[in-house]
């Protein structure tokens, strides 16, 4: 799987848009120190995947300006992992799936005392 730098993401996505690829999804993986965002596109029935690293505390770029359909999954990541997206349209501010009095960022992991990944409760 190719790795793409954060500042080349929009160019890469624009290329895919130009050759008429279909947006499939974004998968966020928590690597404890940072996030792995895996973008999936469908180009003539072939799955095109690439990986982008995202810092945990800095906002990330939204691709909803190019692929409008990405707003749902970006909002979902915002809800579950607390990774903010810039220029997200429409932005549910982390309340697409979660309610105001519910838990925050339920999918995050943290390193426990025994050196093993444990889950935030």
């Amino acid at each position: 799987m190719n790795e793409v730098q954060k500042d080349q993401l929009l160019d890469e996505v624009q290329n895919l848009w130009d050759n008429r690829s279909r947006f499939v999804t974004i998968t966020c993986v928590d690597l404890v120190d940072e996030f792995d965002l895996i973008y999936s596109f469908d180009h003539n029935m072939e799955l095109v995947n690439f990986r982008v690293k995202a810092d945990k505390d800095r906002p990330f770029i939204s691709i909803s300006g190019i692929y409008a359909a990405s707003f749902l999954v970006e909002n979902e990541i915002q809800d579950q992992f607390g990774l903010k997206f810039e220029n997200l349209e429409p932005d549910f501010k982390g309340f697409l799936l979660l309610s105001q009095d519910g838990p925050r960022t339920p999918m995050l992991r943290k390193v426990g005392e025994r050196g093993k990944q444990e889950d935030v409760v």
Binding site: V24, T25, T27, V29, I38, F71, L72, V73
Partner: peptide, 26 residues
Amino acid sequence: LYYVKAGSNRSLDRFRIRTPTFANIP
């Protein structure tokens, strides 16, 4: 679409499902 990433000790690091309805809402 399923994405499965193996973890240690018989568990998975990440298990992601993109169901068709999720893609059809936009």
